[in-house]
Simulated scan of single mutants.
Amino acid sequence: MADILKRLAIFVAVLVGLCLFYMGYRQLYISTGWSWPFKVDQYAMPRLQDIVSRLWEPAATEQPPLVRVLAEKALFTAREAAAGFVIGAVVGIAIGVVFHFSNLFRRGFQPYVVGSQTVPILAIAPMVVIWLGGKGLPVWMPVAVISAFLTFFPVAINTLRGLDSTDPRKLELMRSYAASPLATLWRVKFPSALPFMFSAFKVAATASVVGAIIGELPSSIQDGLGGAILNFAQYYSLDPSALWATNIIAAALGIIFFLIVAIVERLVVRRAPENVA
């Protein structure tokens, strides 16, 4: 409990520090008239109080407060991101296991796995929407696949690294018991790879939110944060605080995904066989 309170206090302290830096930077540039690297004004950097207060104002005429609208959109995006995270994690783990057991597949396909991450996600997203559209799938499924495209790579690489880093003494012990490769994988290699895998899960969790938001743009989905960002970006000159508020909600969603993975890591890794007396 003390450790949780300490981490929470650090998080709050850093958040307050960032807010003070933002306000101080803004005030300094406005008072001095500096214009490098960009001109600071109400459009480039709205006041924090304006951004926060905008959350409690109506999203548009005769609509609920913006924070309620964005919360509903965040839940929709969270469903897409969660599905993409699961799909990407399963695919990534499978690729890592195959590469671990087969040097032929590792040498033949690893360059293509790496190369897949150099392709801009905005170039792939419309293709995925066309491929999966009209197949009777939920409207958010193509977005989940786009999100999975961003999540599988770190999971695959870290799973492979974790499996390759298993203590040779444990492997020798399993061979002395005549254990099958599957038993060795499940009882020794996977537990040893958990710290590597959860490091990747943390990266993939936040990437899944980014992938879901990006995937909503070519999908013409207006129910998620991607649609809100696109809409408020079009009217940025009239209402810049709305876009900034939406970005804050999107960042909060990514932090929540990260925290969920971190909590699961504490529960799972602590109970791994090598950590149990």
Rank of each mutant, 00 (worst) to 15 (best):
V128Q: 10
G134M: 07
L132T: 04
V129C: 02
A123N: 06
P154D: 02
V143M: 10
S147W: 06
P142S: 12
L163F: 04
G136Y: 11
G136A: 05
Q117L: 00
F152L: 07
V129M: 13
Q117N: 11
M127C: 05
V139K: 15
W140S: 15
A125L: 02
V139W: 03
V143A: 06
M127N: 08
V145I: 15
D164R: 15
L122W: 04
I157G: 06
T118Y: 03
T118C: 14
T151S: 10
F152I: 10
M127R: 10
W140H: 03
P120R: 10
I157N: 09
T151V: 12
V129N: 10
D167Y: 02
L137W: 15
M141N: 01
G162H: 04
I146A: 08
A148W: 04
V129A: 12
P154H: 08
P126M: 07
L132A: 10
P168E: 05
I121T: 12
R161C: 05
A148S: 15
L137R: 11
A125R: 10
I124G: 00
G134V: 14
F153P: 03
I124V: 15
A156F: 12
P120T: 13
I121Y: 03
D164S: 13
W131P: 09
V145L: 01
P138I: 04
D167V: 00
I130G: 08
V155S: 06
W131T: 11
L160N: 07
P168T: 03
L160F: 06
F152W: 01
I157S: 13
A156H: 07
W131H: 09
W131Y: 11
Q117V: 03
L150E: 02
P154Y: 10
G162E: 05
F149T: 10
I121F: 00
V129K: 09
K135I: 02
D164P: 04
G162C: 05
D167R: 13
A156I: 11
V145H: 12
P126C: 14
T151Y: 02
I157E: 07
I146S: 02
F152K: 04
F153N: 01
A125Y: 05
G136F: 05
L150S: 14
L122R: 07
V139M: 07
T159C: 09
A148Q: 07
S116K: 08
S147A: 15
N158H: 03
Q117F: 01
K135N: 12
L160C: 03
V128M: 13
A123T: 12
L163A: 02
P142N: 06
F153T: 04
F153V: 07
P154C: 05
K135S: 12
F149I: 09
L137K: 13
S165I: 09
A123Y: 07
I124Y: 08
V155I: 15
W140A: 15
R161K: 03
V139F: 11
G136K: 05
M127G: 00
N158D: 00
I146H: 13
S147P: 11
I124C: 00
V145N: 02
V143N: 03
F153D: 07
T159E: 02
T151N: 06
S116G: 12
P138A: 11
L132W: 05
A125E: 12
M141C: 14
L160Y: 13
M141E: 07
F152R: 13
G136E: 05
T166W: 01
T151A: 15
V119P: 06
A125C: 13
L163N: 01
P154A: 00
G134S: 13
